[in-house]
Design a protein around this nucleic acid. Structure first.
Lengths: 149, 149
DNA sequence: TTCAATGCAAAAACTTTGCATCCAG
DNA sequence: CTGGATGCAAAGTTTTTGCATTGAA
């Protein structure tokens, strides 16, 4: 379960933030690109392509706000910029990332097994865990095949 | 098992890189600070404190090289800069990080359970996994206590 | 001796901030 | 109307790059 436009408006009002066109446009872009991991610049470009210009500073501020509202999740893939995707951590089905060290491609996978691990760590560490992020690094099938000559 | 100075010299020679004082000084800093997650600036400051100045550009280039050699591992804790620690992924005992969302403190924990997960993912995804990185987000004991009023 | 490595400064890349203007409530 | 939101430009941070000089092999 991910948030929809109505949900966004509600969250914003609840916390006395204003429902602006910019904020809705940016959420819509994430809804239209759920398989992607968009950076601030990506968003800015997509908005421009829709001839719906939004200042880059506003894009950054909106991404930060939406992350704070837990509408988006910030991820780092080591490419020097922050990327975001729609948050679904409140769901039992987390998804995580396989990152190809050869071509940089990011593949998603679902898994639930980590819940157990989370519980056992919480018990042993006096740490209240609210979220986790897992990245696996390796080589995707294409790249593996290529390097076999 | 982590690398030592002799191991570094060997790795460098193997790949025809030169064994320079700068590279050895930087590895030594990681050996002396195994519990820390050092950024380029941290390294630069530590070196200065030892009145052993190294140019910041060289620090960056060395961190990149040592990561490529798998002597170091690059980590991102979301604080806007890259951090590094000695790589021990070739060991059966990976360690991972608990990141406190309240105070930013990073706590380490050991675990082996992820090996199974890695295997099952590899089978289901045609992905050859060579490493993984796990981060748990939550609240440390201190911060949890504080917020209970 | 020779070419990789270093140091410095300049540049690049990403993100944040100040401030005047705008507009959602 | 009014204060929060936006846009723009300027500034801040982190990281990379060009080039002359140095030094490991």
């Amino acid at each position: 379960m991910i948030i929809d436009m109505t949900g966004l408006r509600q969250k914003l009002r609840e916390r006395q933030y204003k429902v602006t066109p910019q904020r809705q446009i940016i959420l819509q872009i994430f809804l239209d690109n759920q398989d992607k991991h968009l950076s601030a610049e990506d968003i800015h470009n997509i908005v421009r392509d829709q001839s719906n210009d939004i200042g880059l500073a506003t894009v950054y501020r909106t991404l930060e706000l939406l992350s704070e509202l837990e509408v988006l999740q910030k991820i780092d893939f080591g490419d020097g910029r922050s990327r975001y995707e729609i948050n679904e951590t409140s769901t039992p089905h987390h998804h995580h990332h396989l990152i190809c060290l050869s071509c940089g491609k990011v593949i998603e996978f679902e898994e639930d097994l980590l819940e157990n691990l989370e519980n056992s760590i919480a018990q042993n560490s006096n740490f209240t865990i609210v979220d986790h992020q897992v990245k696996f690094y390796g080589h995707c099938q294409e790249c593996s095949l290529k390097s076999e000559h």
